[in-house]
Structures are given as structure tokens and as C-alpha cells.
């Protein structure tokens, strides 16, 4: 089965859970953003609760646009994961 590589940038505070700001993932061809989050959670269990919890779901940017769980990925994609909140 063909595969693709994506480079995921982890924003604040997600990168701290795994101590790296960028993760390379190999995903099956045709994978979507939801597949990427599942793969991340499998590789990094400590990140899992940030990826699935409803309190503050992660926001994914891809190619300068906001992505959904069903947004298709492609080989060489560089999605960014952030965790949106507000401050004073």
C-alpha cells in the first residue's frame, strides 16, 4: 500500500508533551487529518488526551487554511497543530 510522509508542527503547549516541535509521520495514501491525529496519539500516548478531549480540541492548519478531520493530506504536507485559548 502506498504511503506518504507528513511533517506535523506542534504548537504550544502540545510540543511539550513529547519534547519535540516537529514530528514526521508515515501515513497510508489517502489519509485525512483525523487519521493523522490518531497516528499521533498512537505514537505518543501522552499527547492522546490533547487530541481527543472535547474541552479544547486541537485546531489544525494546513497550507494556510483551517482543516477539518476529513481534510485530505498529501505527501510532504506540513500541518500545524495548535491548542486555542485566550488570555488577558
Amino acid at each position: 500500500m502506498a504511503s506518504m510522509r507528513v511533517h506535523v508542527r506542534l504548537g504550544e503547549p502540545l510540543w511539550r508533551q513529547v519534547n519535540t516541535r516537529e514530528v514526521e509521520l508515515e501515513l497510508p495514501s489517502g489519509a485525512v487529518v483525523g487519521d493523522m491525529l490518531e497516528a499521533l496519539g498512537r505514537r505518543y500516548p501522552e499527547l492522546q488526551s490533547y487530541l481527543v478531549e472535547a474541552e479544547v480540541p486541537p485546531t489544525v492548519f494546513l497550507a494556510d487554511a483551517m482543516a477539518d478531520l476529513t481534510t485530505p493530506l498529501y505527501d510532504g504536507a506540513r500541518p500545524t497543530l495548535i491548542w486555542a485559548a485566550a488570555g488577558g
Binding site: 504550544e12 503547549p13 490533547y50 479544547v56 492548519f61 491548542w83 485559548a85 485566550a86 488577558g88
Partner: peptide, 20 residues
């Protein structure tokens, strides 16, 4: 988690969110 993160990092963690 928001409470936990604010307690660890304070509000500066939001800079990256807005910047990205």
C-alpha cells in the same frame, strides 16, 4: 487542561496560537 496549562506556562503560550 486549560487550567493546568495556564498554571504551567501562564498566558504567554497564547502568543504561538495567535502567531501561527
Amino acid at each position: 487542561k486549560v487550567i493546568k496549562v495556564l498554571g504551567q506556562l501562564g498566558t504567554p503560550f497564547l502568543y504561538d496560537v495567535s502567531n501561527q
